[in-house]
């Protein structure tokens, strides 16, 4: 009868370690997404996305009307999203329970945005930009992390 209690006692630090690993992976992925979105934002702000010279498909996507919402480039929103995920992941590593919830919400919002952007590339613009695909892949991996690991096992003990 004592065995389950021993298991539970052993599982507690193990769960905590796996949480740290998962949030660290999420932070690294978010950094990769941040770098990608930063590059695309700079291309937009310098007007490079309004010219052809590099990849034809990227020009088609980045020069389209879907590359910005009003005056705000979509890449800038992506940058904010990835930076938020990175920040929340870092705070989650340090046991901030609210950061974990915020990270999950942000990742799901970004997943929805990635689906919309993929749809636009595939069925409206009929061209794929490799930087946008990379960003979508990062978002899907982040979503995978959020989905694959149950919330309870990852939620660190809330700070008093």
């Amino acid at each position: 009868m004592a065995r389950p209690e021993q298991n539970t006692a052993r599982r507690q630090p193990a769960t905590s370690r796996s949480a740290i690993i998962v949030y660290s992976i999420a932070a690294v992925l978010a950094l990769a997404g941040l770098a990608d979105a930063l590059y695309l934002t700079v291309l937009h702000l310098t007007g490079q996305s309004a010219v052809c010279g590099g990849s034809p498909s990227c020009s088609q996507v980045l020069a389209s009307k879907y590359a910005h919402i009003g005056p705000v480039p979509v890449a800038l929103l992506g940058m904010l999203g990835y930076f938020s995920v990175f920040s929340f992941a870092v705070f989650s590593v340090f046991n901030y329970a609210r950061a974990t919830v915020l990270m999950r919400i942000t990742v799901w919002l970004m997943f929805a945005a990635a689906l919309v952007l993929l749809y636009l590339q595939a069925f409206v613009i009929h061209a794929f930009c490799r930087y946008c695909l990379f960003s979508a892949a990062v978002t899907f991996l982040l979503t995978g992390l959020v989905v694959a690991i149950p919330a309870q096992s990852l939620t660190p003990k809330a700070r008093p």
Binding site: L31, L34, L38, T41, V42, F83, F86, V90, F91
Partner: peptide, 16 residues
Amino acid sequence: PLGIVAFVALVAMGVG
């Protein structure tokens, strides 16, 4: 954590 986030924000702004 605040320091890590601030450091990354500064690096991102510098690279940008």
